[in-house]
Design a protein around this nucleic acid. Structure first.
Lengths: 214, 214
DNA sequence: TAGGCAATTAAACACGTGTTTAATACTCTT
DNA sequence: AAGAGTATTAAACACGTGTTTAATTGCCTA
């Protein structure tokens, strides 16, 4: 019968290596050495390198979602609280400013340079999350937003969050050492929530593109 | 004497290939085939693959900065106009939602997974741009912001812009086809400017973290 | 205890990698 | 026209790549 622990050991070893070097840069010999298994094991269990990669991406997504689930919102929670909860959970998943776990690096890699795993990732993982954010935005807006407006507002919010993961190394180079503690997770969640709430409230009070002094 | 055109031809060919496959994934034989030169040329002109890469990154940065320079702001320009100008120029450099030129892909790659070229890139390229944005933010805020607040606001703005490059493929999967034209460069610049202006104005009216209903 | 099958192994395969070499082609100056 | 020095070339080098093979181990069942 299939020894599940070897399979799991390979995926666990493959994760950080794919995350660090990408699909092309990672080598099966590296992965096998790290997992303590024979080079032939990957082909034995997964067929080839590609299928191991797909499996690893799926696993990464599952781990992140399970460890930091988005809360179920009861009806008595205000939309403001929902927004803070959303931003906070998203940042927690991304582990802003700390060294990212391999799962996040791998998923970010898929976002920036999609392979076959990406379409599925968007459909099953990103889109549902994004839809729930759009629901919150609808509740916060003081007038009905157009279809493109609500998406743009959504991107403005997730863009702020993702930036701290995308550009974490650049952020670390720009933020002076003595301010480091002001950029911890809770502080960032406070800032992004506040910034976005202010924007949404004012945003809805006028029609689009009427604000630009140009 | 050094034939400059061969050197240039190699860098031109190396750019898209490094951008697409990264340093590890790109092969010198691919680059040389694309440039129409012998495999030995890279070592002849650049010493090794690594030095070619560094040269290519520098070149990419120079091309983007020259093609889309940030305007010199005369004193009669309002800070609101400066912000729109900044956002618009930044998006133009990133070529939001259209297929990115190789220079952008290469620089983004450095941001996400820095090599030696990154520190220099931040110092000479990103930081000056960011500082000028911070100046605009200071002008827009109705009260003096703390050192960390102004940086966070700056990141909120560039984060919104960069998102459309980082996650361009995901954005394309999420935006319905009939809304595509609402996500062209000018529309995005309008939105981000408006969203951020609204946020900054309201942001400064209260002390940090006092807005969260929690 | 013998047989069968899944799991693991070392070795080999065919090909791709960055880099080097030594020979050839080219292009100016004297 | 001859020669010095740069530029370009094909070939080879040593090593790394993903994958396959055939042999061996380990373990449970009959």
């Amino acid at each position: 019968m299939g020894d599940e622990s070897t399979r799991a050991r390979i995926v666990d070893a493959a994760g950080p290596i794919f995350a660090e070097h990408g699909f092309e840069g990672a080598t099966v010999r590296d992965i096998c050495r790290s997992a303590g298994v024979n080079v032939a094991s990957i082909n034995y269990y997964f067929g080839d390198k590609q299928h191991l990669y797909l499996e690893t991406v799926k696993y990464a997504r599952r781990v992140r979602a399970e460890r930091y689930p988005f809360s179920e919102w009861t009806s008595d929670i205000s939309p403001e609280e929902k927004l803070y909860d959303f931003v906070s959970t998203m940042l927690r998943r991304l582990m802003a400013l700390q060294s990212a776990p391999w799962q996040v690096k791998l998923l970010m890699r898929e976002v920036m340079q999609p392979t076959e795993a990406c379409r599925q990732l968007v459909r099953d993982y990103f889109k549902p999350i994004f839809e729930s954010l759009l629901g919150v935005i609808d509740q916060l807006a003081t007038r009905p937003l157009t279809a493109d407006e609500r998406i743009k507002v959504g991107f403005s919010i997730v863009g702020q969050c993702l930036h701290y993961r995308y550009a974490s190394e650049v952020v670390a180079l720009i933020v002076p050492g003595e301010l480091r503690e002001q950029f911890e997770l809770e502080r960032l969640a406070d800032h992004i929530t506040k910034f976005s709430l202010d924007a949404i409230r004012a945003y809805a009070e006028q029609s689009a593109a009427s604000n630009r002094t140009h």
